[in-house]
Simulated assay, not measured.
Amino acid sequence: MSSQLAKPPLLSIEGLTISLPTAEGHRAEAVRGVDLAIGRGEIVGLAGESGSGKTLTALSVLGLLPGGARSGGRIFFEERDLLASGRAARAVRGSEVAMVFQDPMTALHPMLSIGRQMTEHVRFHLHLSQHAADAVAVEMLDRVRIPNPREAMTRYPHQFSGGMRQRIAIASALAAGPKLLIADEPTTALDVTVQAGILRLIEGLRRELQLSVLLITHDLGVMSALADRVYVMYAGRVVERGARSDVLALPRHPYTRGLLDALPHGSPSDHPLRALPGSPPAIGRFPVGCAFHPRCRFAEDICRADVPDLMPVAPGRVIACPIDPLMAVPA
Results as ranks from 00 to 15, higher is better:
Arg143Phe: 10
His127Trp: 08
His127Gly: 08
Pro147Glu: 08
Asp81Cys: 07
Asn148Arg: 07
Arg93Val: 05
Phe124Thr: 09
Ile146Thr: 15
Ala88Gln: 06
Leu112Pro: 00
Leu59Thr: 11
Lys54Ile: 02
Ser85Phe: 07
Val122Phe: 14
Leu64Gly: 03
Arg74Cys: 06
Pro147Tyr: 01
Ala89Val: 13
Arg74Tyr: 00
Arg143Tyr: 07
Thr154Pro: 05
Ser60Cys: 12
Ala91Asn: 14
Val97Ile: 14
Leu56Asp: 14
Asp134Arg: 15
Arg70Pro: 05
Arg150Phe: 14
Leu126Ala: 15
Gly86Asp: 14
Thr154Phe: 02
Phe101Glu: 05
Gln102Met: 07
Glu79Cys: 01
Phe77Ser: 05
Val97Glu: 02
Arg93Phe: 09
Gly86Thr: 14
Asn148Gln: 14
Thr57Pro: 04
Ala137Trp: 15
Glu78Asp: 09
Leu83Gly: 12
Leu64Met: 07
Arg123Met: 15
Val61Leu: 13
Glu151Met: 14
Leu62Ile: 00
Asp134Ser: 08
Ala137Val: 03
Arg116Phe: 15
Phe101Pro: 10
Arg74Lys: 14
Leu108Cys: 03
His109Ala: 06
Leu108Lys: 01
Leu128Pro: 13
Met99Cys: 02
Ala152Pro: 11
Val61Asp: 03
Met140His: 07
Leu112Arg: 13
Met140Gln: 10
Gln130Trp: 02
Phe76Thr: 12
Val144Ser: 05
Arg87Lys: 08
Val136Ile: 10
Ala98Cys: 01
Arg143Gln: 11
Gln130Val: 04
Val138Pro: 04
Glu139Leu: 09
Ser129Met: 06
Val100Met: 09
Arg93Gly: 03
Leu126Tyr: 12
Gly63Cys: 07
Ser60Phe: 11
Asn148Leu: 11
Gly67Ile: 00
Leu83Tyr: 03
His109Tyr: 03
His158Ser: 08
Val136Pro: 11
Val92Pro: 13
Val97Asn: 02
Ala133Thr: 08
Tyr156Val: 00
Arg155Asn: 05
Arg145Pro: 00
Thr119Met: 04
Leu62Ala: 04
Ala98Gln: 01
Arg90Asn: 03
Arg116Gly: 04
Gly73Ile: 12
Ala152Asp: 11
Ala98Arg: 04
Leu126Phe: 13
Thr57Ser: 14
Ala132Arg: 12
Pro104Gln: 08
Leu141Asp: 15
Glu78His: 10
Asn148Lys: 02
Met111Arg: 00
Asp103Cys: 04
Arg74Ile: 08
Gly86Arg: 12
Ala137Met: 03
Ala137Glu: 09
Gly67Thr: 00
Leu112Thr: 03
Pro104Asp: 04
Ala137Tyr: 04
Lys54His: 07
Phe101Cys: 05
Arg70Val: 09
Gly73Phe: 11
Ile75Arg: 04
Phe124Pro: 01
Glu79Phe: 10
Leu128Glu: 02
Gly67Asn: 08
Ala133Cys: 11
Ser129Asp: 05
Leu56Pro: 13
Arg155Cys: 14
Asp103Lys: 01
Asp142His: 15
Asn148His: 10
Arg123Thr: 09
Ala133Lys: 06
Leu56Cys: 11
